[in-house]
Design a protein around this nucleic acid. Structure first.
Lengths: 359, 359
DNA sequence: AACTACGATGGGAACGGTTCCATAACCCTG
DNA sequence: CAGGGTTATGGAACCGTTCCCATCGTAGTT
């Protein structure tokens, strides 16, 4: 009656030991990796006692002594970006397979939140960090690096900061995009990107685009980068101006990532511009791309592979903490899915606007 | 030279104390909530020492002693579902504001993973659990409940399991959908759902649909539920049969959630059925809905509010652990966004197929 | 001037595990 | 049967905190 039940009582290893009539060392061994060192009989007694008490080892205490938290941290710039989620899915799977758990933090592209979350992750003594963050490396991030925690940068590398990087082969992606557009008969390309200052991958893509354009006399190129959150209203003007300039030719728009593709698709819709007459090709595959108009051609990133590679890279460094190893870069090839949005209507091109992608 | 640097050395509270020339108790006070109990001078010395050593409190040790992990767990059935992510975003924000961190686990709708993850969360001594899981309540989940951890069910409640629930007002949602379809002149409605056995919200929606259909002589109704992963091929037949039967009337399809909407949109596209001639209304708002054809009408769930409400519910129970309090149910109203997919082309209805949603 | 109250500080015992080392029983070998 | 090696088990120290309790000035009270 008067017994005030504590909010949530968890059985301890000592209670299990007492219940089973053995020492707590044995119980520890049972739940650790040394079960085979115990006699059959003892194993049975411990198992029974643990079950009776509903015992679960306390990971906090466990991590305290050994210093191994079994935790991998992940910092995501924008959790609502499907690309991030897809990669995160791969990361989580890989972690699970290796016996680690994943602590995910979303920064909403906010450096303050990024720093807060890094402090948080540090306080949980994560053993590795997968980071896909904005802007400059923060003091907190440098602290991780200095102190020896394995780090992997996702998609974007940071200036003046050495760490493994996993991401897309950006030059290859731009090449594939341009080649495809050219092959489809487009000769005037508008490249649209989010602000390049925040992410090296954006820089790499933009740079390759400009380089290619300089080398292809048959193509006209133009590039803009803009902040989708605050400058969306500039987009219609940019597109209108581009189309006016390119009226004599076959214009196409190349979108630097999924967010851009979404926004551009909205603008084209508002302006009643049919897809295909103006080519549209987006980097990042999105589940709805085949649904819009004749379908939007995309370059898909192998998100799952990227996520898994990130974890693998982490674990490799975790096993042999020789920080001498130079940073590794892993770059994946994109996959092109041609759809109607890069099929010019006025040609006899034999592309099928409605692709039969779904089984 | 011969000094083997441990993988990652973290300063401890004792080292800081020594460096500052004070006791570890004082350092503990400084980093706890008792900073004001320390003299200005001492605060300064500790701050300086901590900074010099790059000290970060060890949350593991902290949680061990106080029993407070400051961790909230969240179990998500499908992390790749945008609805789940949106809710998760709200949950995370709310947690952060209250000083908790969020440990998210994705089950991929797999009961085995669900149980694994529950064990994991238990081992981290999470103080509360937000769960959006499939099927029956597992033994592990019951263990949480029995042992007093506050729980909130998201969207779907579990049979024979008492806990707070936060989600959509499903009856209201179906009512709004049907009313809208009826008002737009549709009189024959096909309701499509994922398997109802797995989620109470699906049951509730289906039930309300059938109830409404029974009470509306002017409307014809038909409902199917199917497993999108394994039975997609059934969908074209279902839709074809429905349209054949409803050839004399004005047919519309009501999709029970975002996944269904996506799949149905694909089928309609494959069959070259224009949206609007067959009405289409989906529960769950998705960023691309306005892009497909004349736009897909949706009922949006207030995902952010749902996530925050879940956390609030948790914290409330956390503060006063009187488990006598009966389960609370919080249900939110959906928001209807009419678009072209519920605008019949052969009527003089004054709906604007291309909505001007974007600023 | 002795007594109390209080504010600032430190010492040390938990917290729930892991792990090193000791012990006891047993089997083998010469 | 003494010596040496296993194997199964337990004792106790330790991991980095928090928190209870003790100590010690110092100011306020009578």
């Amino acid at each position: 009656m008067s017994e005030s039940i504590p909010a949530a009582h968890h059985a301890t290893i000592l209670e299990v030991a007492k219940e089973a009539g053995v020492s707590k060392t044995s119980v520890s061994r049972y739940f650790g990796d040394e079960r085979e060192r115990l006699s059959r009989q003892m194993q049975a007694r411990i198992a029974a006692a643990a079950k009776r008490l509903g015992y679960r080892p306390n990971q906090m205490a466990r991590g305290l002594k050994g210093g191994r938290s079994q935790l991998i941290g992940m910092l995501v710039a924008d959790i609502r970006n499907p690309f991030s989620v897809a990669v995160m899915h791969g990361v989580e799977q890989a972690c699970r397979e290796k016996g680690y758990s994943l602590l995910v933090c979303n920064t909403d592209n906010d450096p303050a939140q990024e720093r807060d979350h890094l402090n948080l992750l540090a306080s949980y003594r994560i053993e590795g960090l997968v980071i896909n963050a904005a802007g400059q490396p923060s003091r907190e991030l440098r602290a991780f690096a200095r102190q020896g925690t394995p780090l992997v940068l996702l998609d974007r590398l940071l200036s003046d900061f050495e760490a493994d990087v996993v991401g897309l082969d950006n030059a290859q992606a731009i090449d594939m995009a341009i080649d495809h557009l050219q092959h489809q008969g487009y000769d005037d390309v508008l490249y649209l990107s989010e602000p390049v200052a925040q992410a090296s991958s954006r820089q790499a893509r933009l740079q390759r685009f400009q380089q290619r354009m300089a080398n292809e006399p048959a193509l006209n190129g133009e590039a803009h980068s803009l902040d989708l959150d605050n400058e969306t209203q500039r987009l219609p003007d940019i597109i209108t101006a581009f189309l006016a300039r390119a009226s004599h030719s076959a214009p196409a728009i190349l979108c630097g990532n999924g967010n851009v593709t979404l926004t551009v698709a909205h603008v084209l819709q508002d302006q009643r511009i049919p897809l295909g007459s103006v080519g549209l090709l987006g980097i990042d595959e999105l589940e709805w791309c085949s649904l819009v108009g004749p379908g939007i051609t995309t370059l898909a990133q192998p998100t799952d592979a990227i996520g898994r590679a990130a974890v693998q890279s982490l674990l490799q460094r975790l096993e042999k903490p020789q920080r001498q190893t130079p940073p590794r870069r892993t770059h994946y090839q994109p996959r092109l899915t041609p759809r109607g949005s890069t099929c010019r209507p006025d040609t006899t091109n034999q592309c099928d606007p409605v692709s039969q992608e779904r089984p």
